[in-house]
């Protein structure tokens, strides 16, 4: 009989080690999603032309089925076929595709009045960006990042189709050997991992955006929910 206990550290599909593999696939794409889409999103928020080009390009990238990207990326990069970098690159592309739009919206949400005021009191463009616009865009950026992290954790499972181990192995094995408990274990493990990533993100946001806490709860939640629609 399949038992979670026996398969936690042992067996052919050890849950703990697959979880570590899974985390290893997700962290970089989430970071890339953030750091690459900030400049792109900022650019998109400043120019209508840039916005429509960037958003359409990433929308098309996003409609590509993950399985295709997972097959095309290794061919394009010329890396070893079983190199986890292939999955990391594919997931990063998805992360940026989601995040560019959120980040464009985040910077668009900063009102022109505020930017003008910052300029009026003598802020340089860099100061304006780092001390005014970025902090004000923070809550919406956070809402976008939460979607990025959740979807990255969930998508990483598809990597098993090109031989990169993750919690997704629990699904394929459960299907092949017809072990429902193993599949449920895999799904729950992915959900828990997504939750942990989410808690980490909110904690970082709480440290970086202290004023966000003081905002009325309802308003913060509303902001988040609006970003979630997109």
């Amino acid at each position: 009989m399949y038992s979670i206990w026996d398969n936690f550290f042992g067996g052919s599909y050890p849950i703990w080690y697959l979880t570590l593999d899974h985390i290893g696939l997700c962290v970089i794409p989430i970071l890339v999603g953030f750091f690459v889409s900030i400049p792109l999103g900022y650019l998109a928020s400043r120019s209508r032309g840039a916005r429509s080009v960037l958003i359409s390009v990433f929308s098309i990238l996003y409609t590509l089925p993950s399985i295709v990207l997972f097959v095309v990326v290794p061919v394009t990069l010329g890396l070893a076929i079983l190199d986890p970098t292939n999955v990391i690159v594919a997931l990063s592309i998805y992360a940026v595709a989601i995040m560019v739009r959120s980040s464009a919206d985040a910077f668009s949400s900063v009102s022109a009045d505020v930017r003008e005021s910052a300029r009026a009191v003598g802020y340089s463009p860099a100061q304006r960006f780092f001390q005014v616009e970025l902090p004000l865009a923070g809550p919406v950026l956070l809402a976008g990042m939460r979607i990025v992290s959740v979807s990255t954790v969930s998508l990483a499972t598809v990597g098993v189709f090109i031989g990169i181990p993750s919690l997704g192995l629990l699904f394929t094995d459960a299907f092949n050997r017809q072990i429902p408990l193993e599949a449920v274990t895999g799904i729950v493990a992915v959900l828990i991992l997504a939750l942990i990533f989410d808690v980490i993100l909110s904690t970082i946001a709480r440290i970086l955006l202290p004023w966000n806490r003081r905002e009325s709860r309802r308003r913060a939640a509303r902001t988040a929910s609006k970003a979630v629609v997109m």
Binding site: S108, A227, M230
Partner: peptide, 25 residues
């Protein structure tokens, strides 16, 4: 028209056009 928002409440405006993002394929 832009609300007098100086905070992220302004997102509502951006979101109003309801542009799509999907994930999870």
């Amino acid at each position: 028209t832009k609300e007098k928002s100086t905070t992220a409440r302004g997102t509502a405006l951006a979101a109003k056009t309801g542009t799509p993002i999907q994930e999870g394929n």
